[in-house]
Design a protein around this nucleic acid. Structure first.
Lengths: 137, 137, 137, 137
DNA sequence: GTGGTCTAGACCACT
DNA sequence: GTGGTCTAGACCACA
């Protein structure tokens, strides 16, 4: 992990969305940015990629991106600089501690556990698969 | 893993839904039944709990349950027995092999891997948390 | 002021918007509802008028109303009941005390004071005009 | 009210803007100048502060100030004196009578009345608050 | 019927 | 160029 100079201009490639799921695109964007902030990959003062840039990169409508940005602004994670774009708010405190970041992952893991039990899968097999996926990246 | 006598009457408690998520309830029901079938916890010939029983147990609208049952019927996993309710279709091929069941879990684990990487979490920490959740159940 | 039975179905007429101003319609709706809640004219458990009803009554696009409702939901003042509509949240504590309600009015009055001073108007004249407007309603 | 010598150089401090509101800054500037003219605090022939001085004093973009000046010029309230900046037009009719100035304040007061009624506030309480704000300045 | 999401496209305010 | 607001209209999930 590199900790780049700050502030800097973020690229639209920080976002990745999947279609064909029921999770709304704007919500995927919101939650991705929350994780990137918690993980310290996005820092206070960073300039967000423009709405139009993200929209074109992801192939979605600009309003969809704008909605995500607006909600992140309402939440205090982004601030709007009129005519200049959005930037990451100063008070978004950056890299969270390990415990907090693990807590953000817990709901997803609990869901996995439920699914594994319905599939009658042993913990050992599940962990082996997760390990191979994590290491393979 | 226990393989119960067959046929038998399934209880509404085989289902569990979460609200406050964007995943539609009817879809949660469908995918749970698919997993229970793959895991062998639900067998061909088993009698499904009634729509109204499931609806009341989960606190959802009966039409939502009915929609899930109808789609499972259209898919051939359930058959409607007039006056008797739905039962699990004979051709639902029951307990799948380990590989197939793991494949059903893979998409969820891949999503976890993406989230972990955005959170800058080490594989070790993620695996430790999943292990504790799986063992704690 | 009448304190009606509760819960009840609110009419779209609780809202009034003005066009030709720079204040966005969705924001006018949000702030009106906040005031009606603080004033006790809208109570916890009340059913909000439907998006489509408000949109048609005010002659605006349903998405505009929907945006206001969504933000009020995010703020915790409204709760969504799937398939049934929105209702006023239980925790919106209804009629606020006199001090709090006056504070909601203060920014507008401070702006009036600035304008009056730029217009070189005596307090006496301003108060006389406000009095006549308030009493005339 | 003092009636200063004329002509003179106006300072950037005649303007005050608020951010975080939806009212555009250039419009705030335009309406403030209109009120200062109606109130007689700005007189025909007065030299306006320069665009760059106002922009720096208020912390806004010079183009925003320039836009306001241009619109005031198009409206005939300001005239451009090449190389010398803008000055207040001779035909700006100066200090209006009391009735006209009160009329400029009426829309704001009517809005206050609407908000007070939504907040279920008695005229007496509203007038008391306005009085304290006006006297406190 | 309810609200939610998304698209396509327009216009506005501001830099 | 930036984001914001609004419209018109489509489709979805849910009751």
């Amino acid at each position: 992990m590199t900790v780049p100079d700050n502030p800097r201009q973020l690229s639209a490639e920080i976002f990745r969305v999947v279609t064909g799921t029921s999770e709304p695109i704007y919500r995927q964007l919101i939650e991705q940015l929350r994780r990137l902030l918690a993980g310290g990959q996005v820092l206070a003062g960073d300039a967000m990629p423009s709405v139009r840039e993200v929209a074109s990169e992801l192939g979605v409508n600009p309003m969809t991106v704008s909605k995500a940005y607006s909600m992140l602004e309402a939440e205090g994670l982004l601030v709007r600089r009129r005519g200049l774009g959005m930037e990451v708010a100063a008070q978004s405190d950056g890299n969270s501690d390990l415990e907090s970041r693990l807590e953000l992952l817990r709901p997803g893991l609990e869901r996995i556990a439920v699914e594994a039990s319905q599939l009658e899968l042993e913990p050992k097999a599940v962990i082996a698969l997760l390990t191979s996926i994590l290491k393979g990246k």
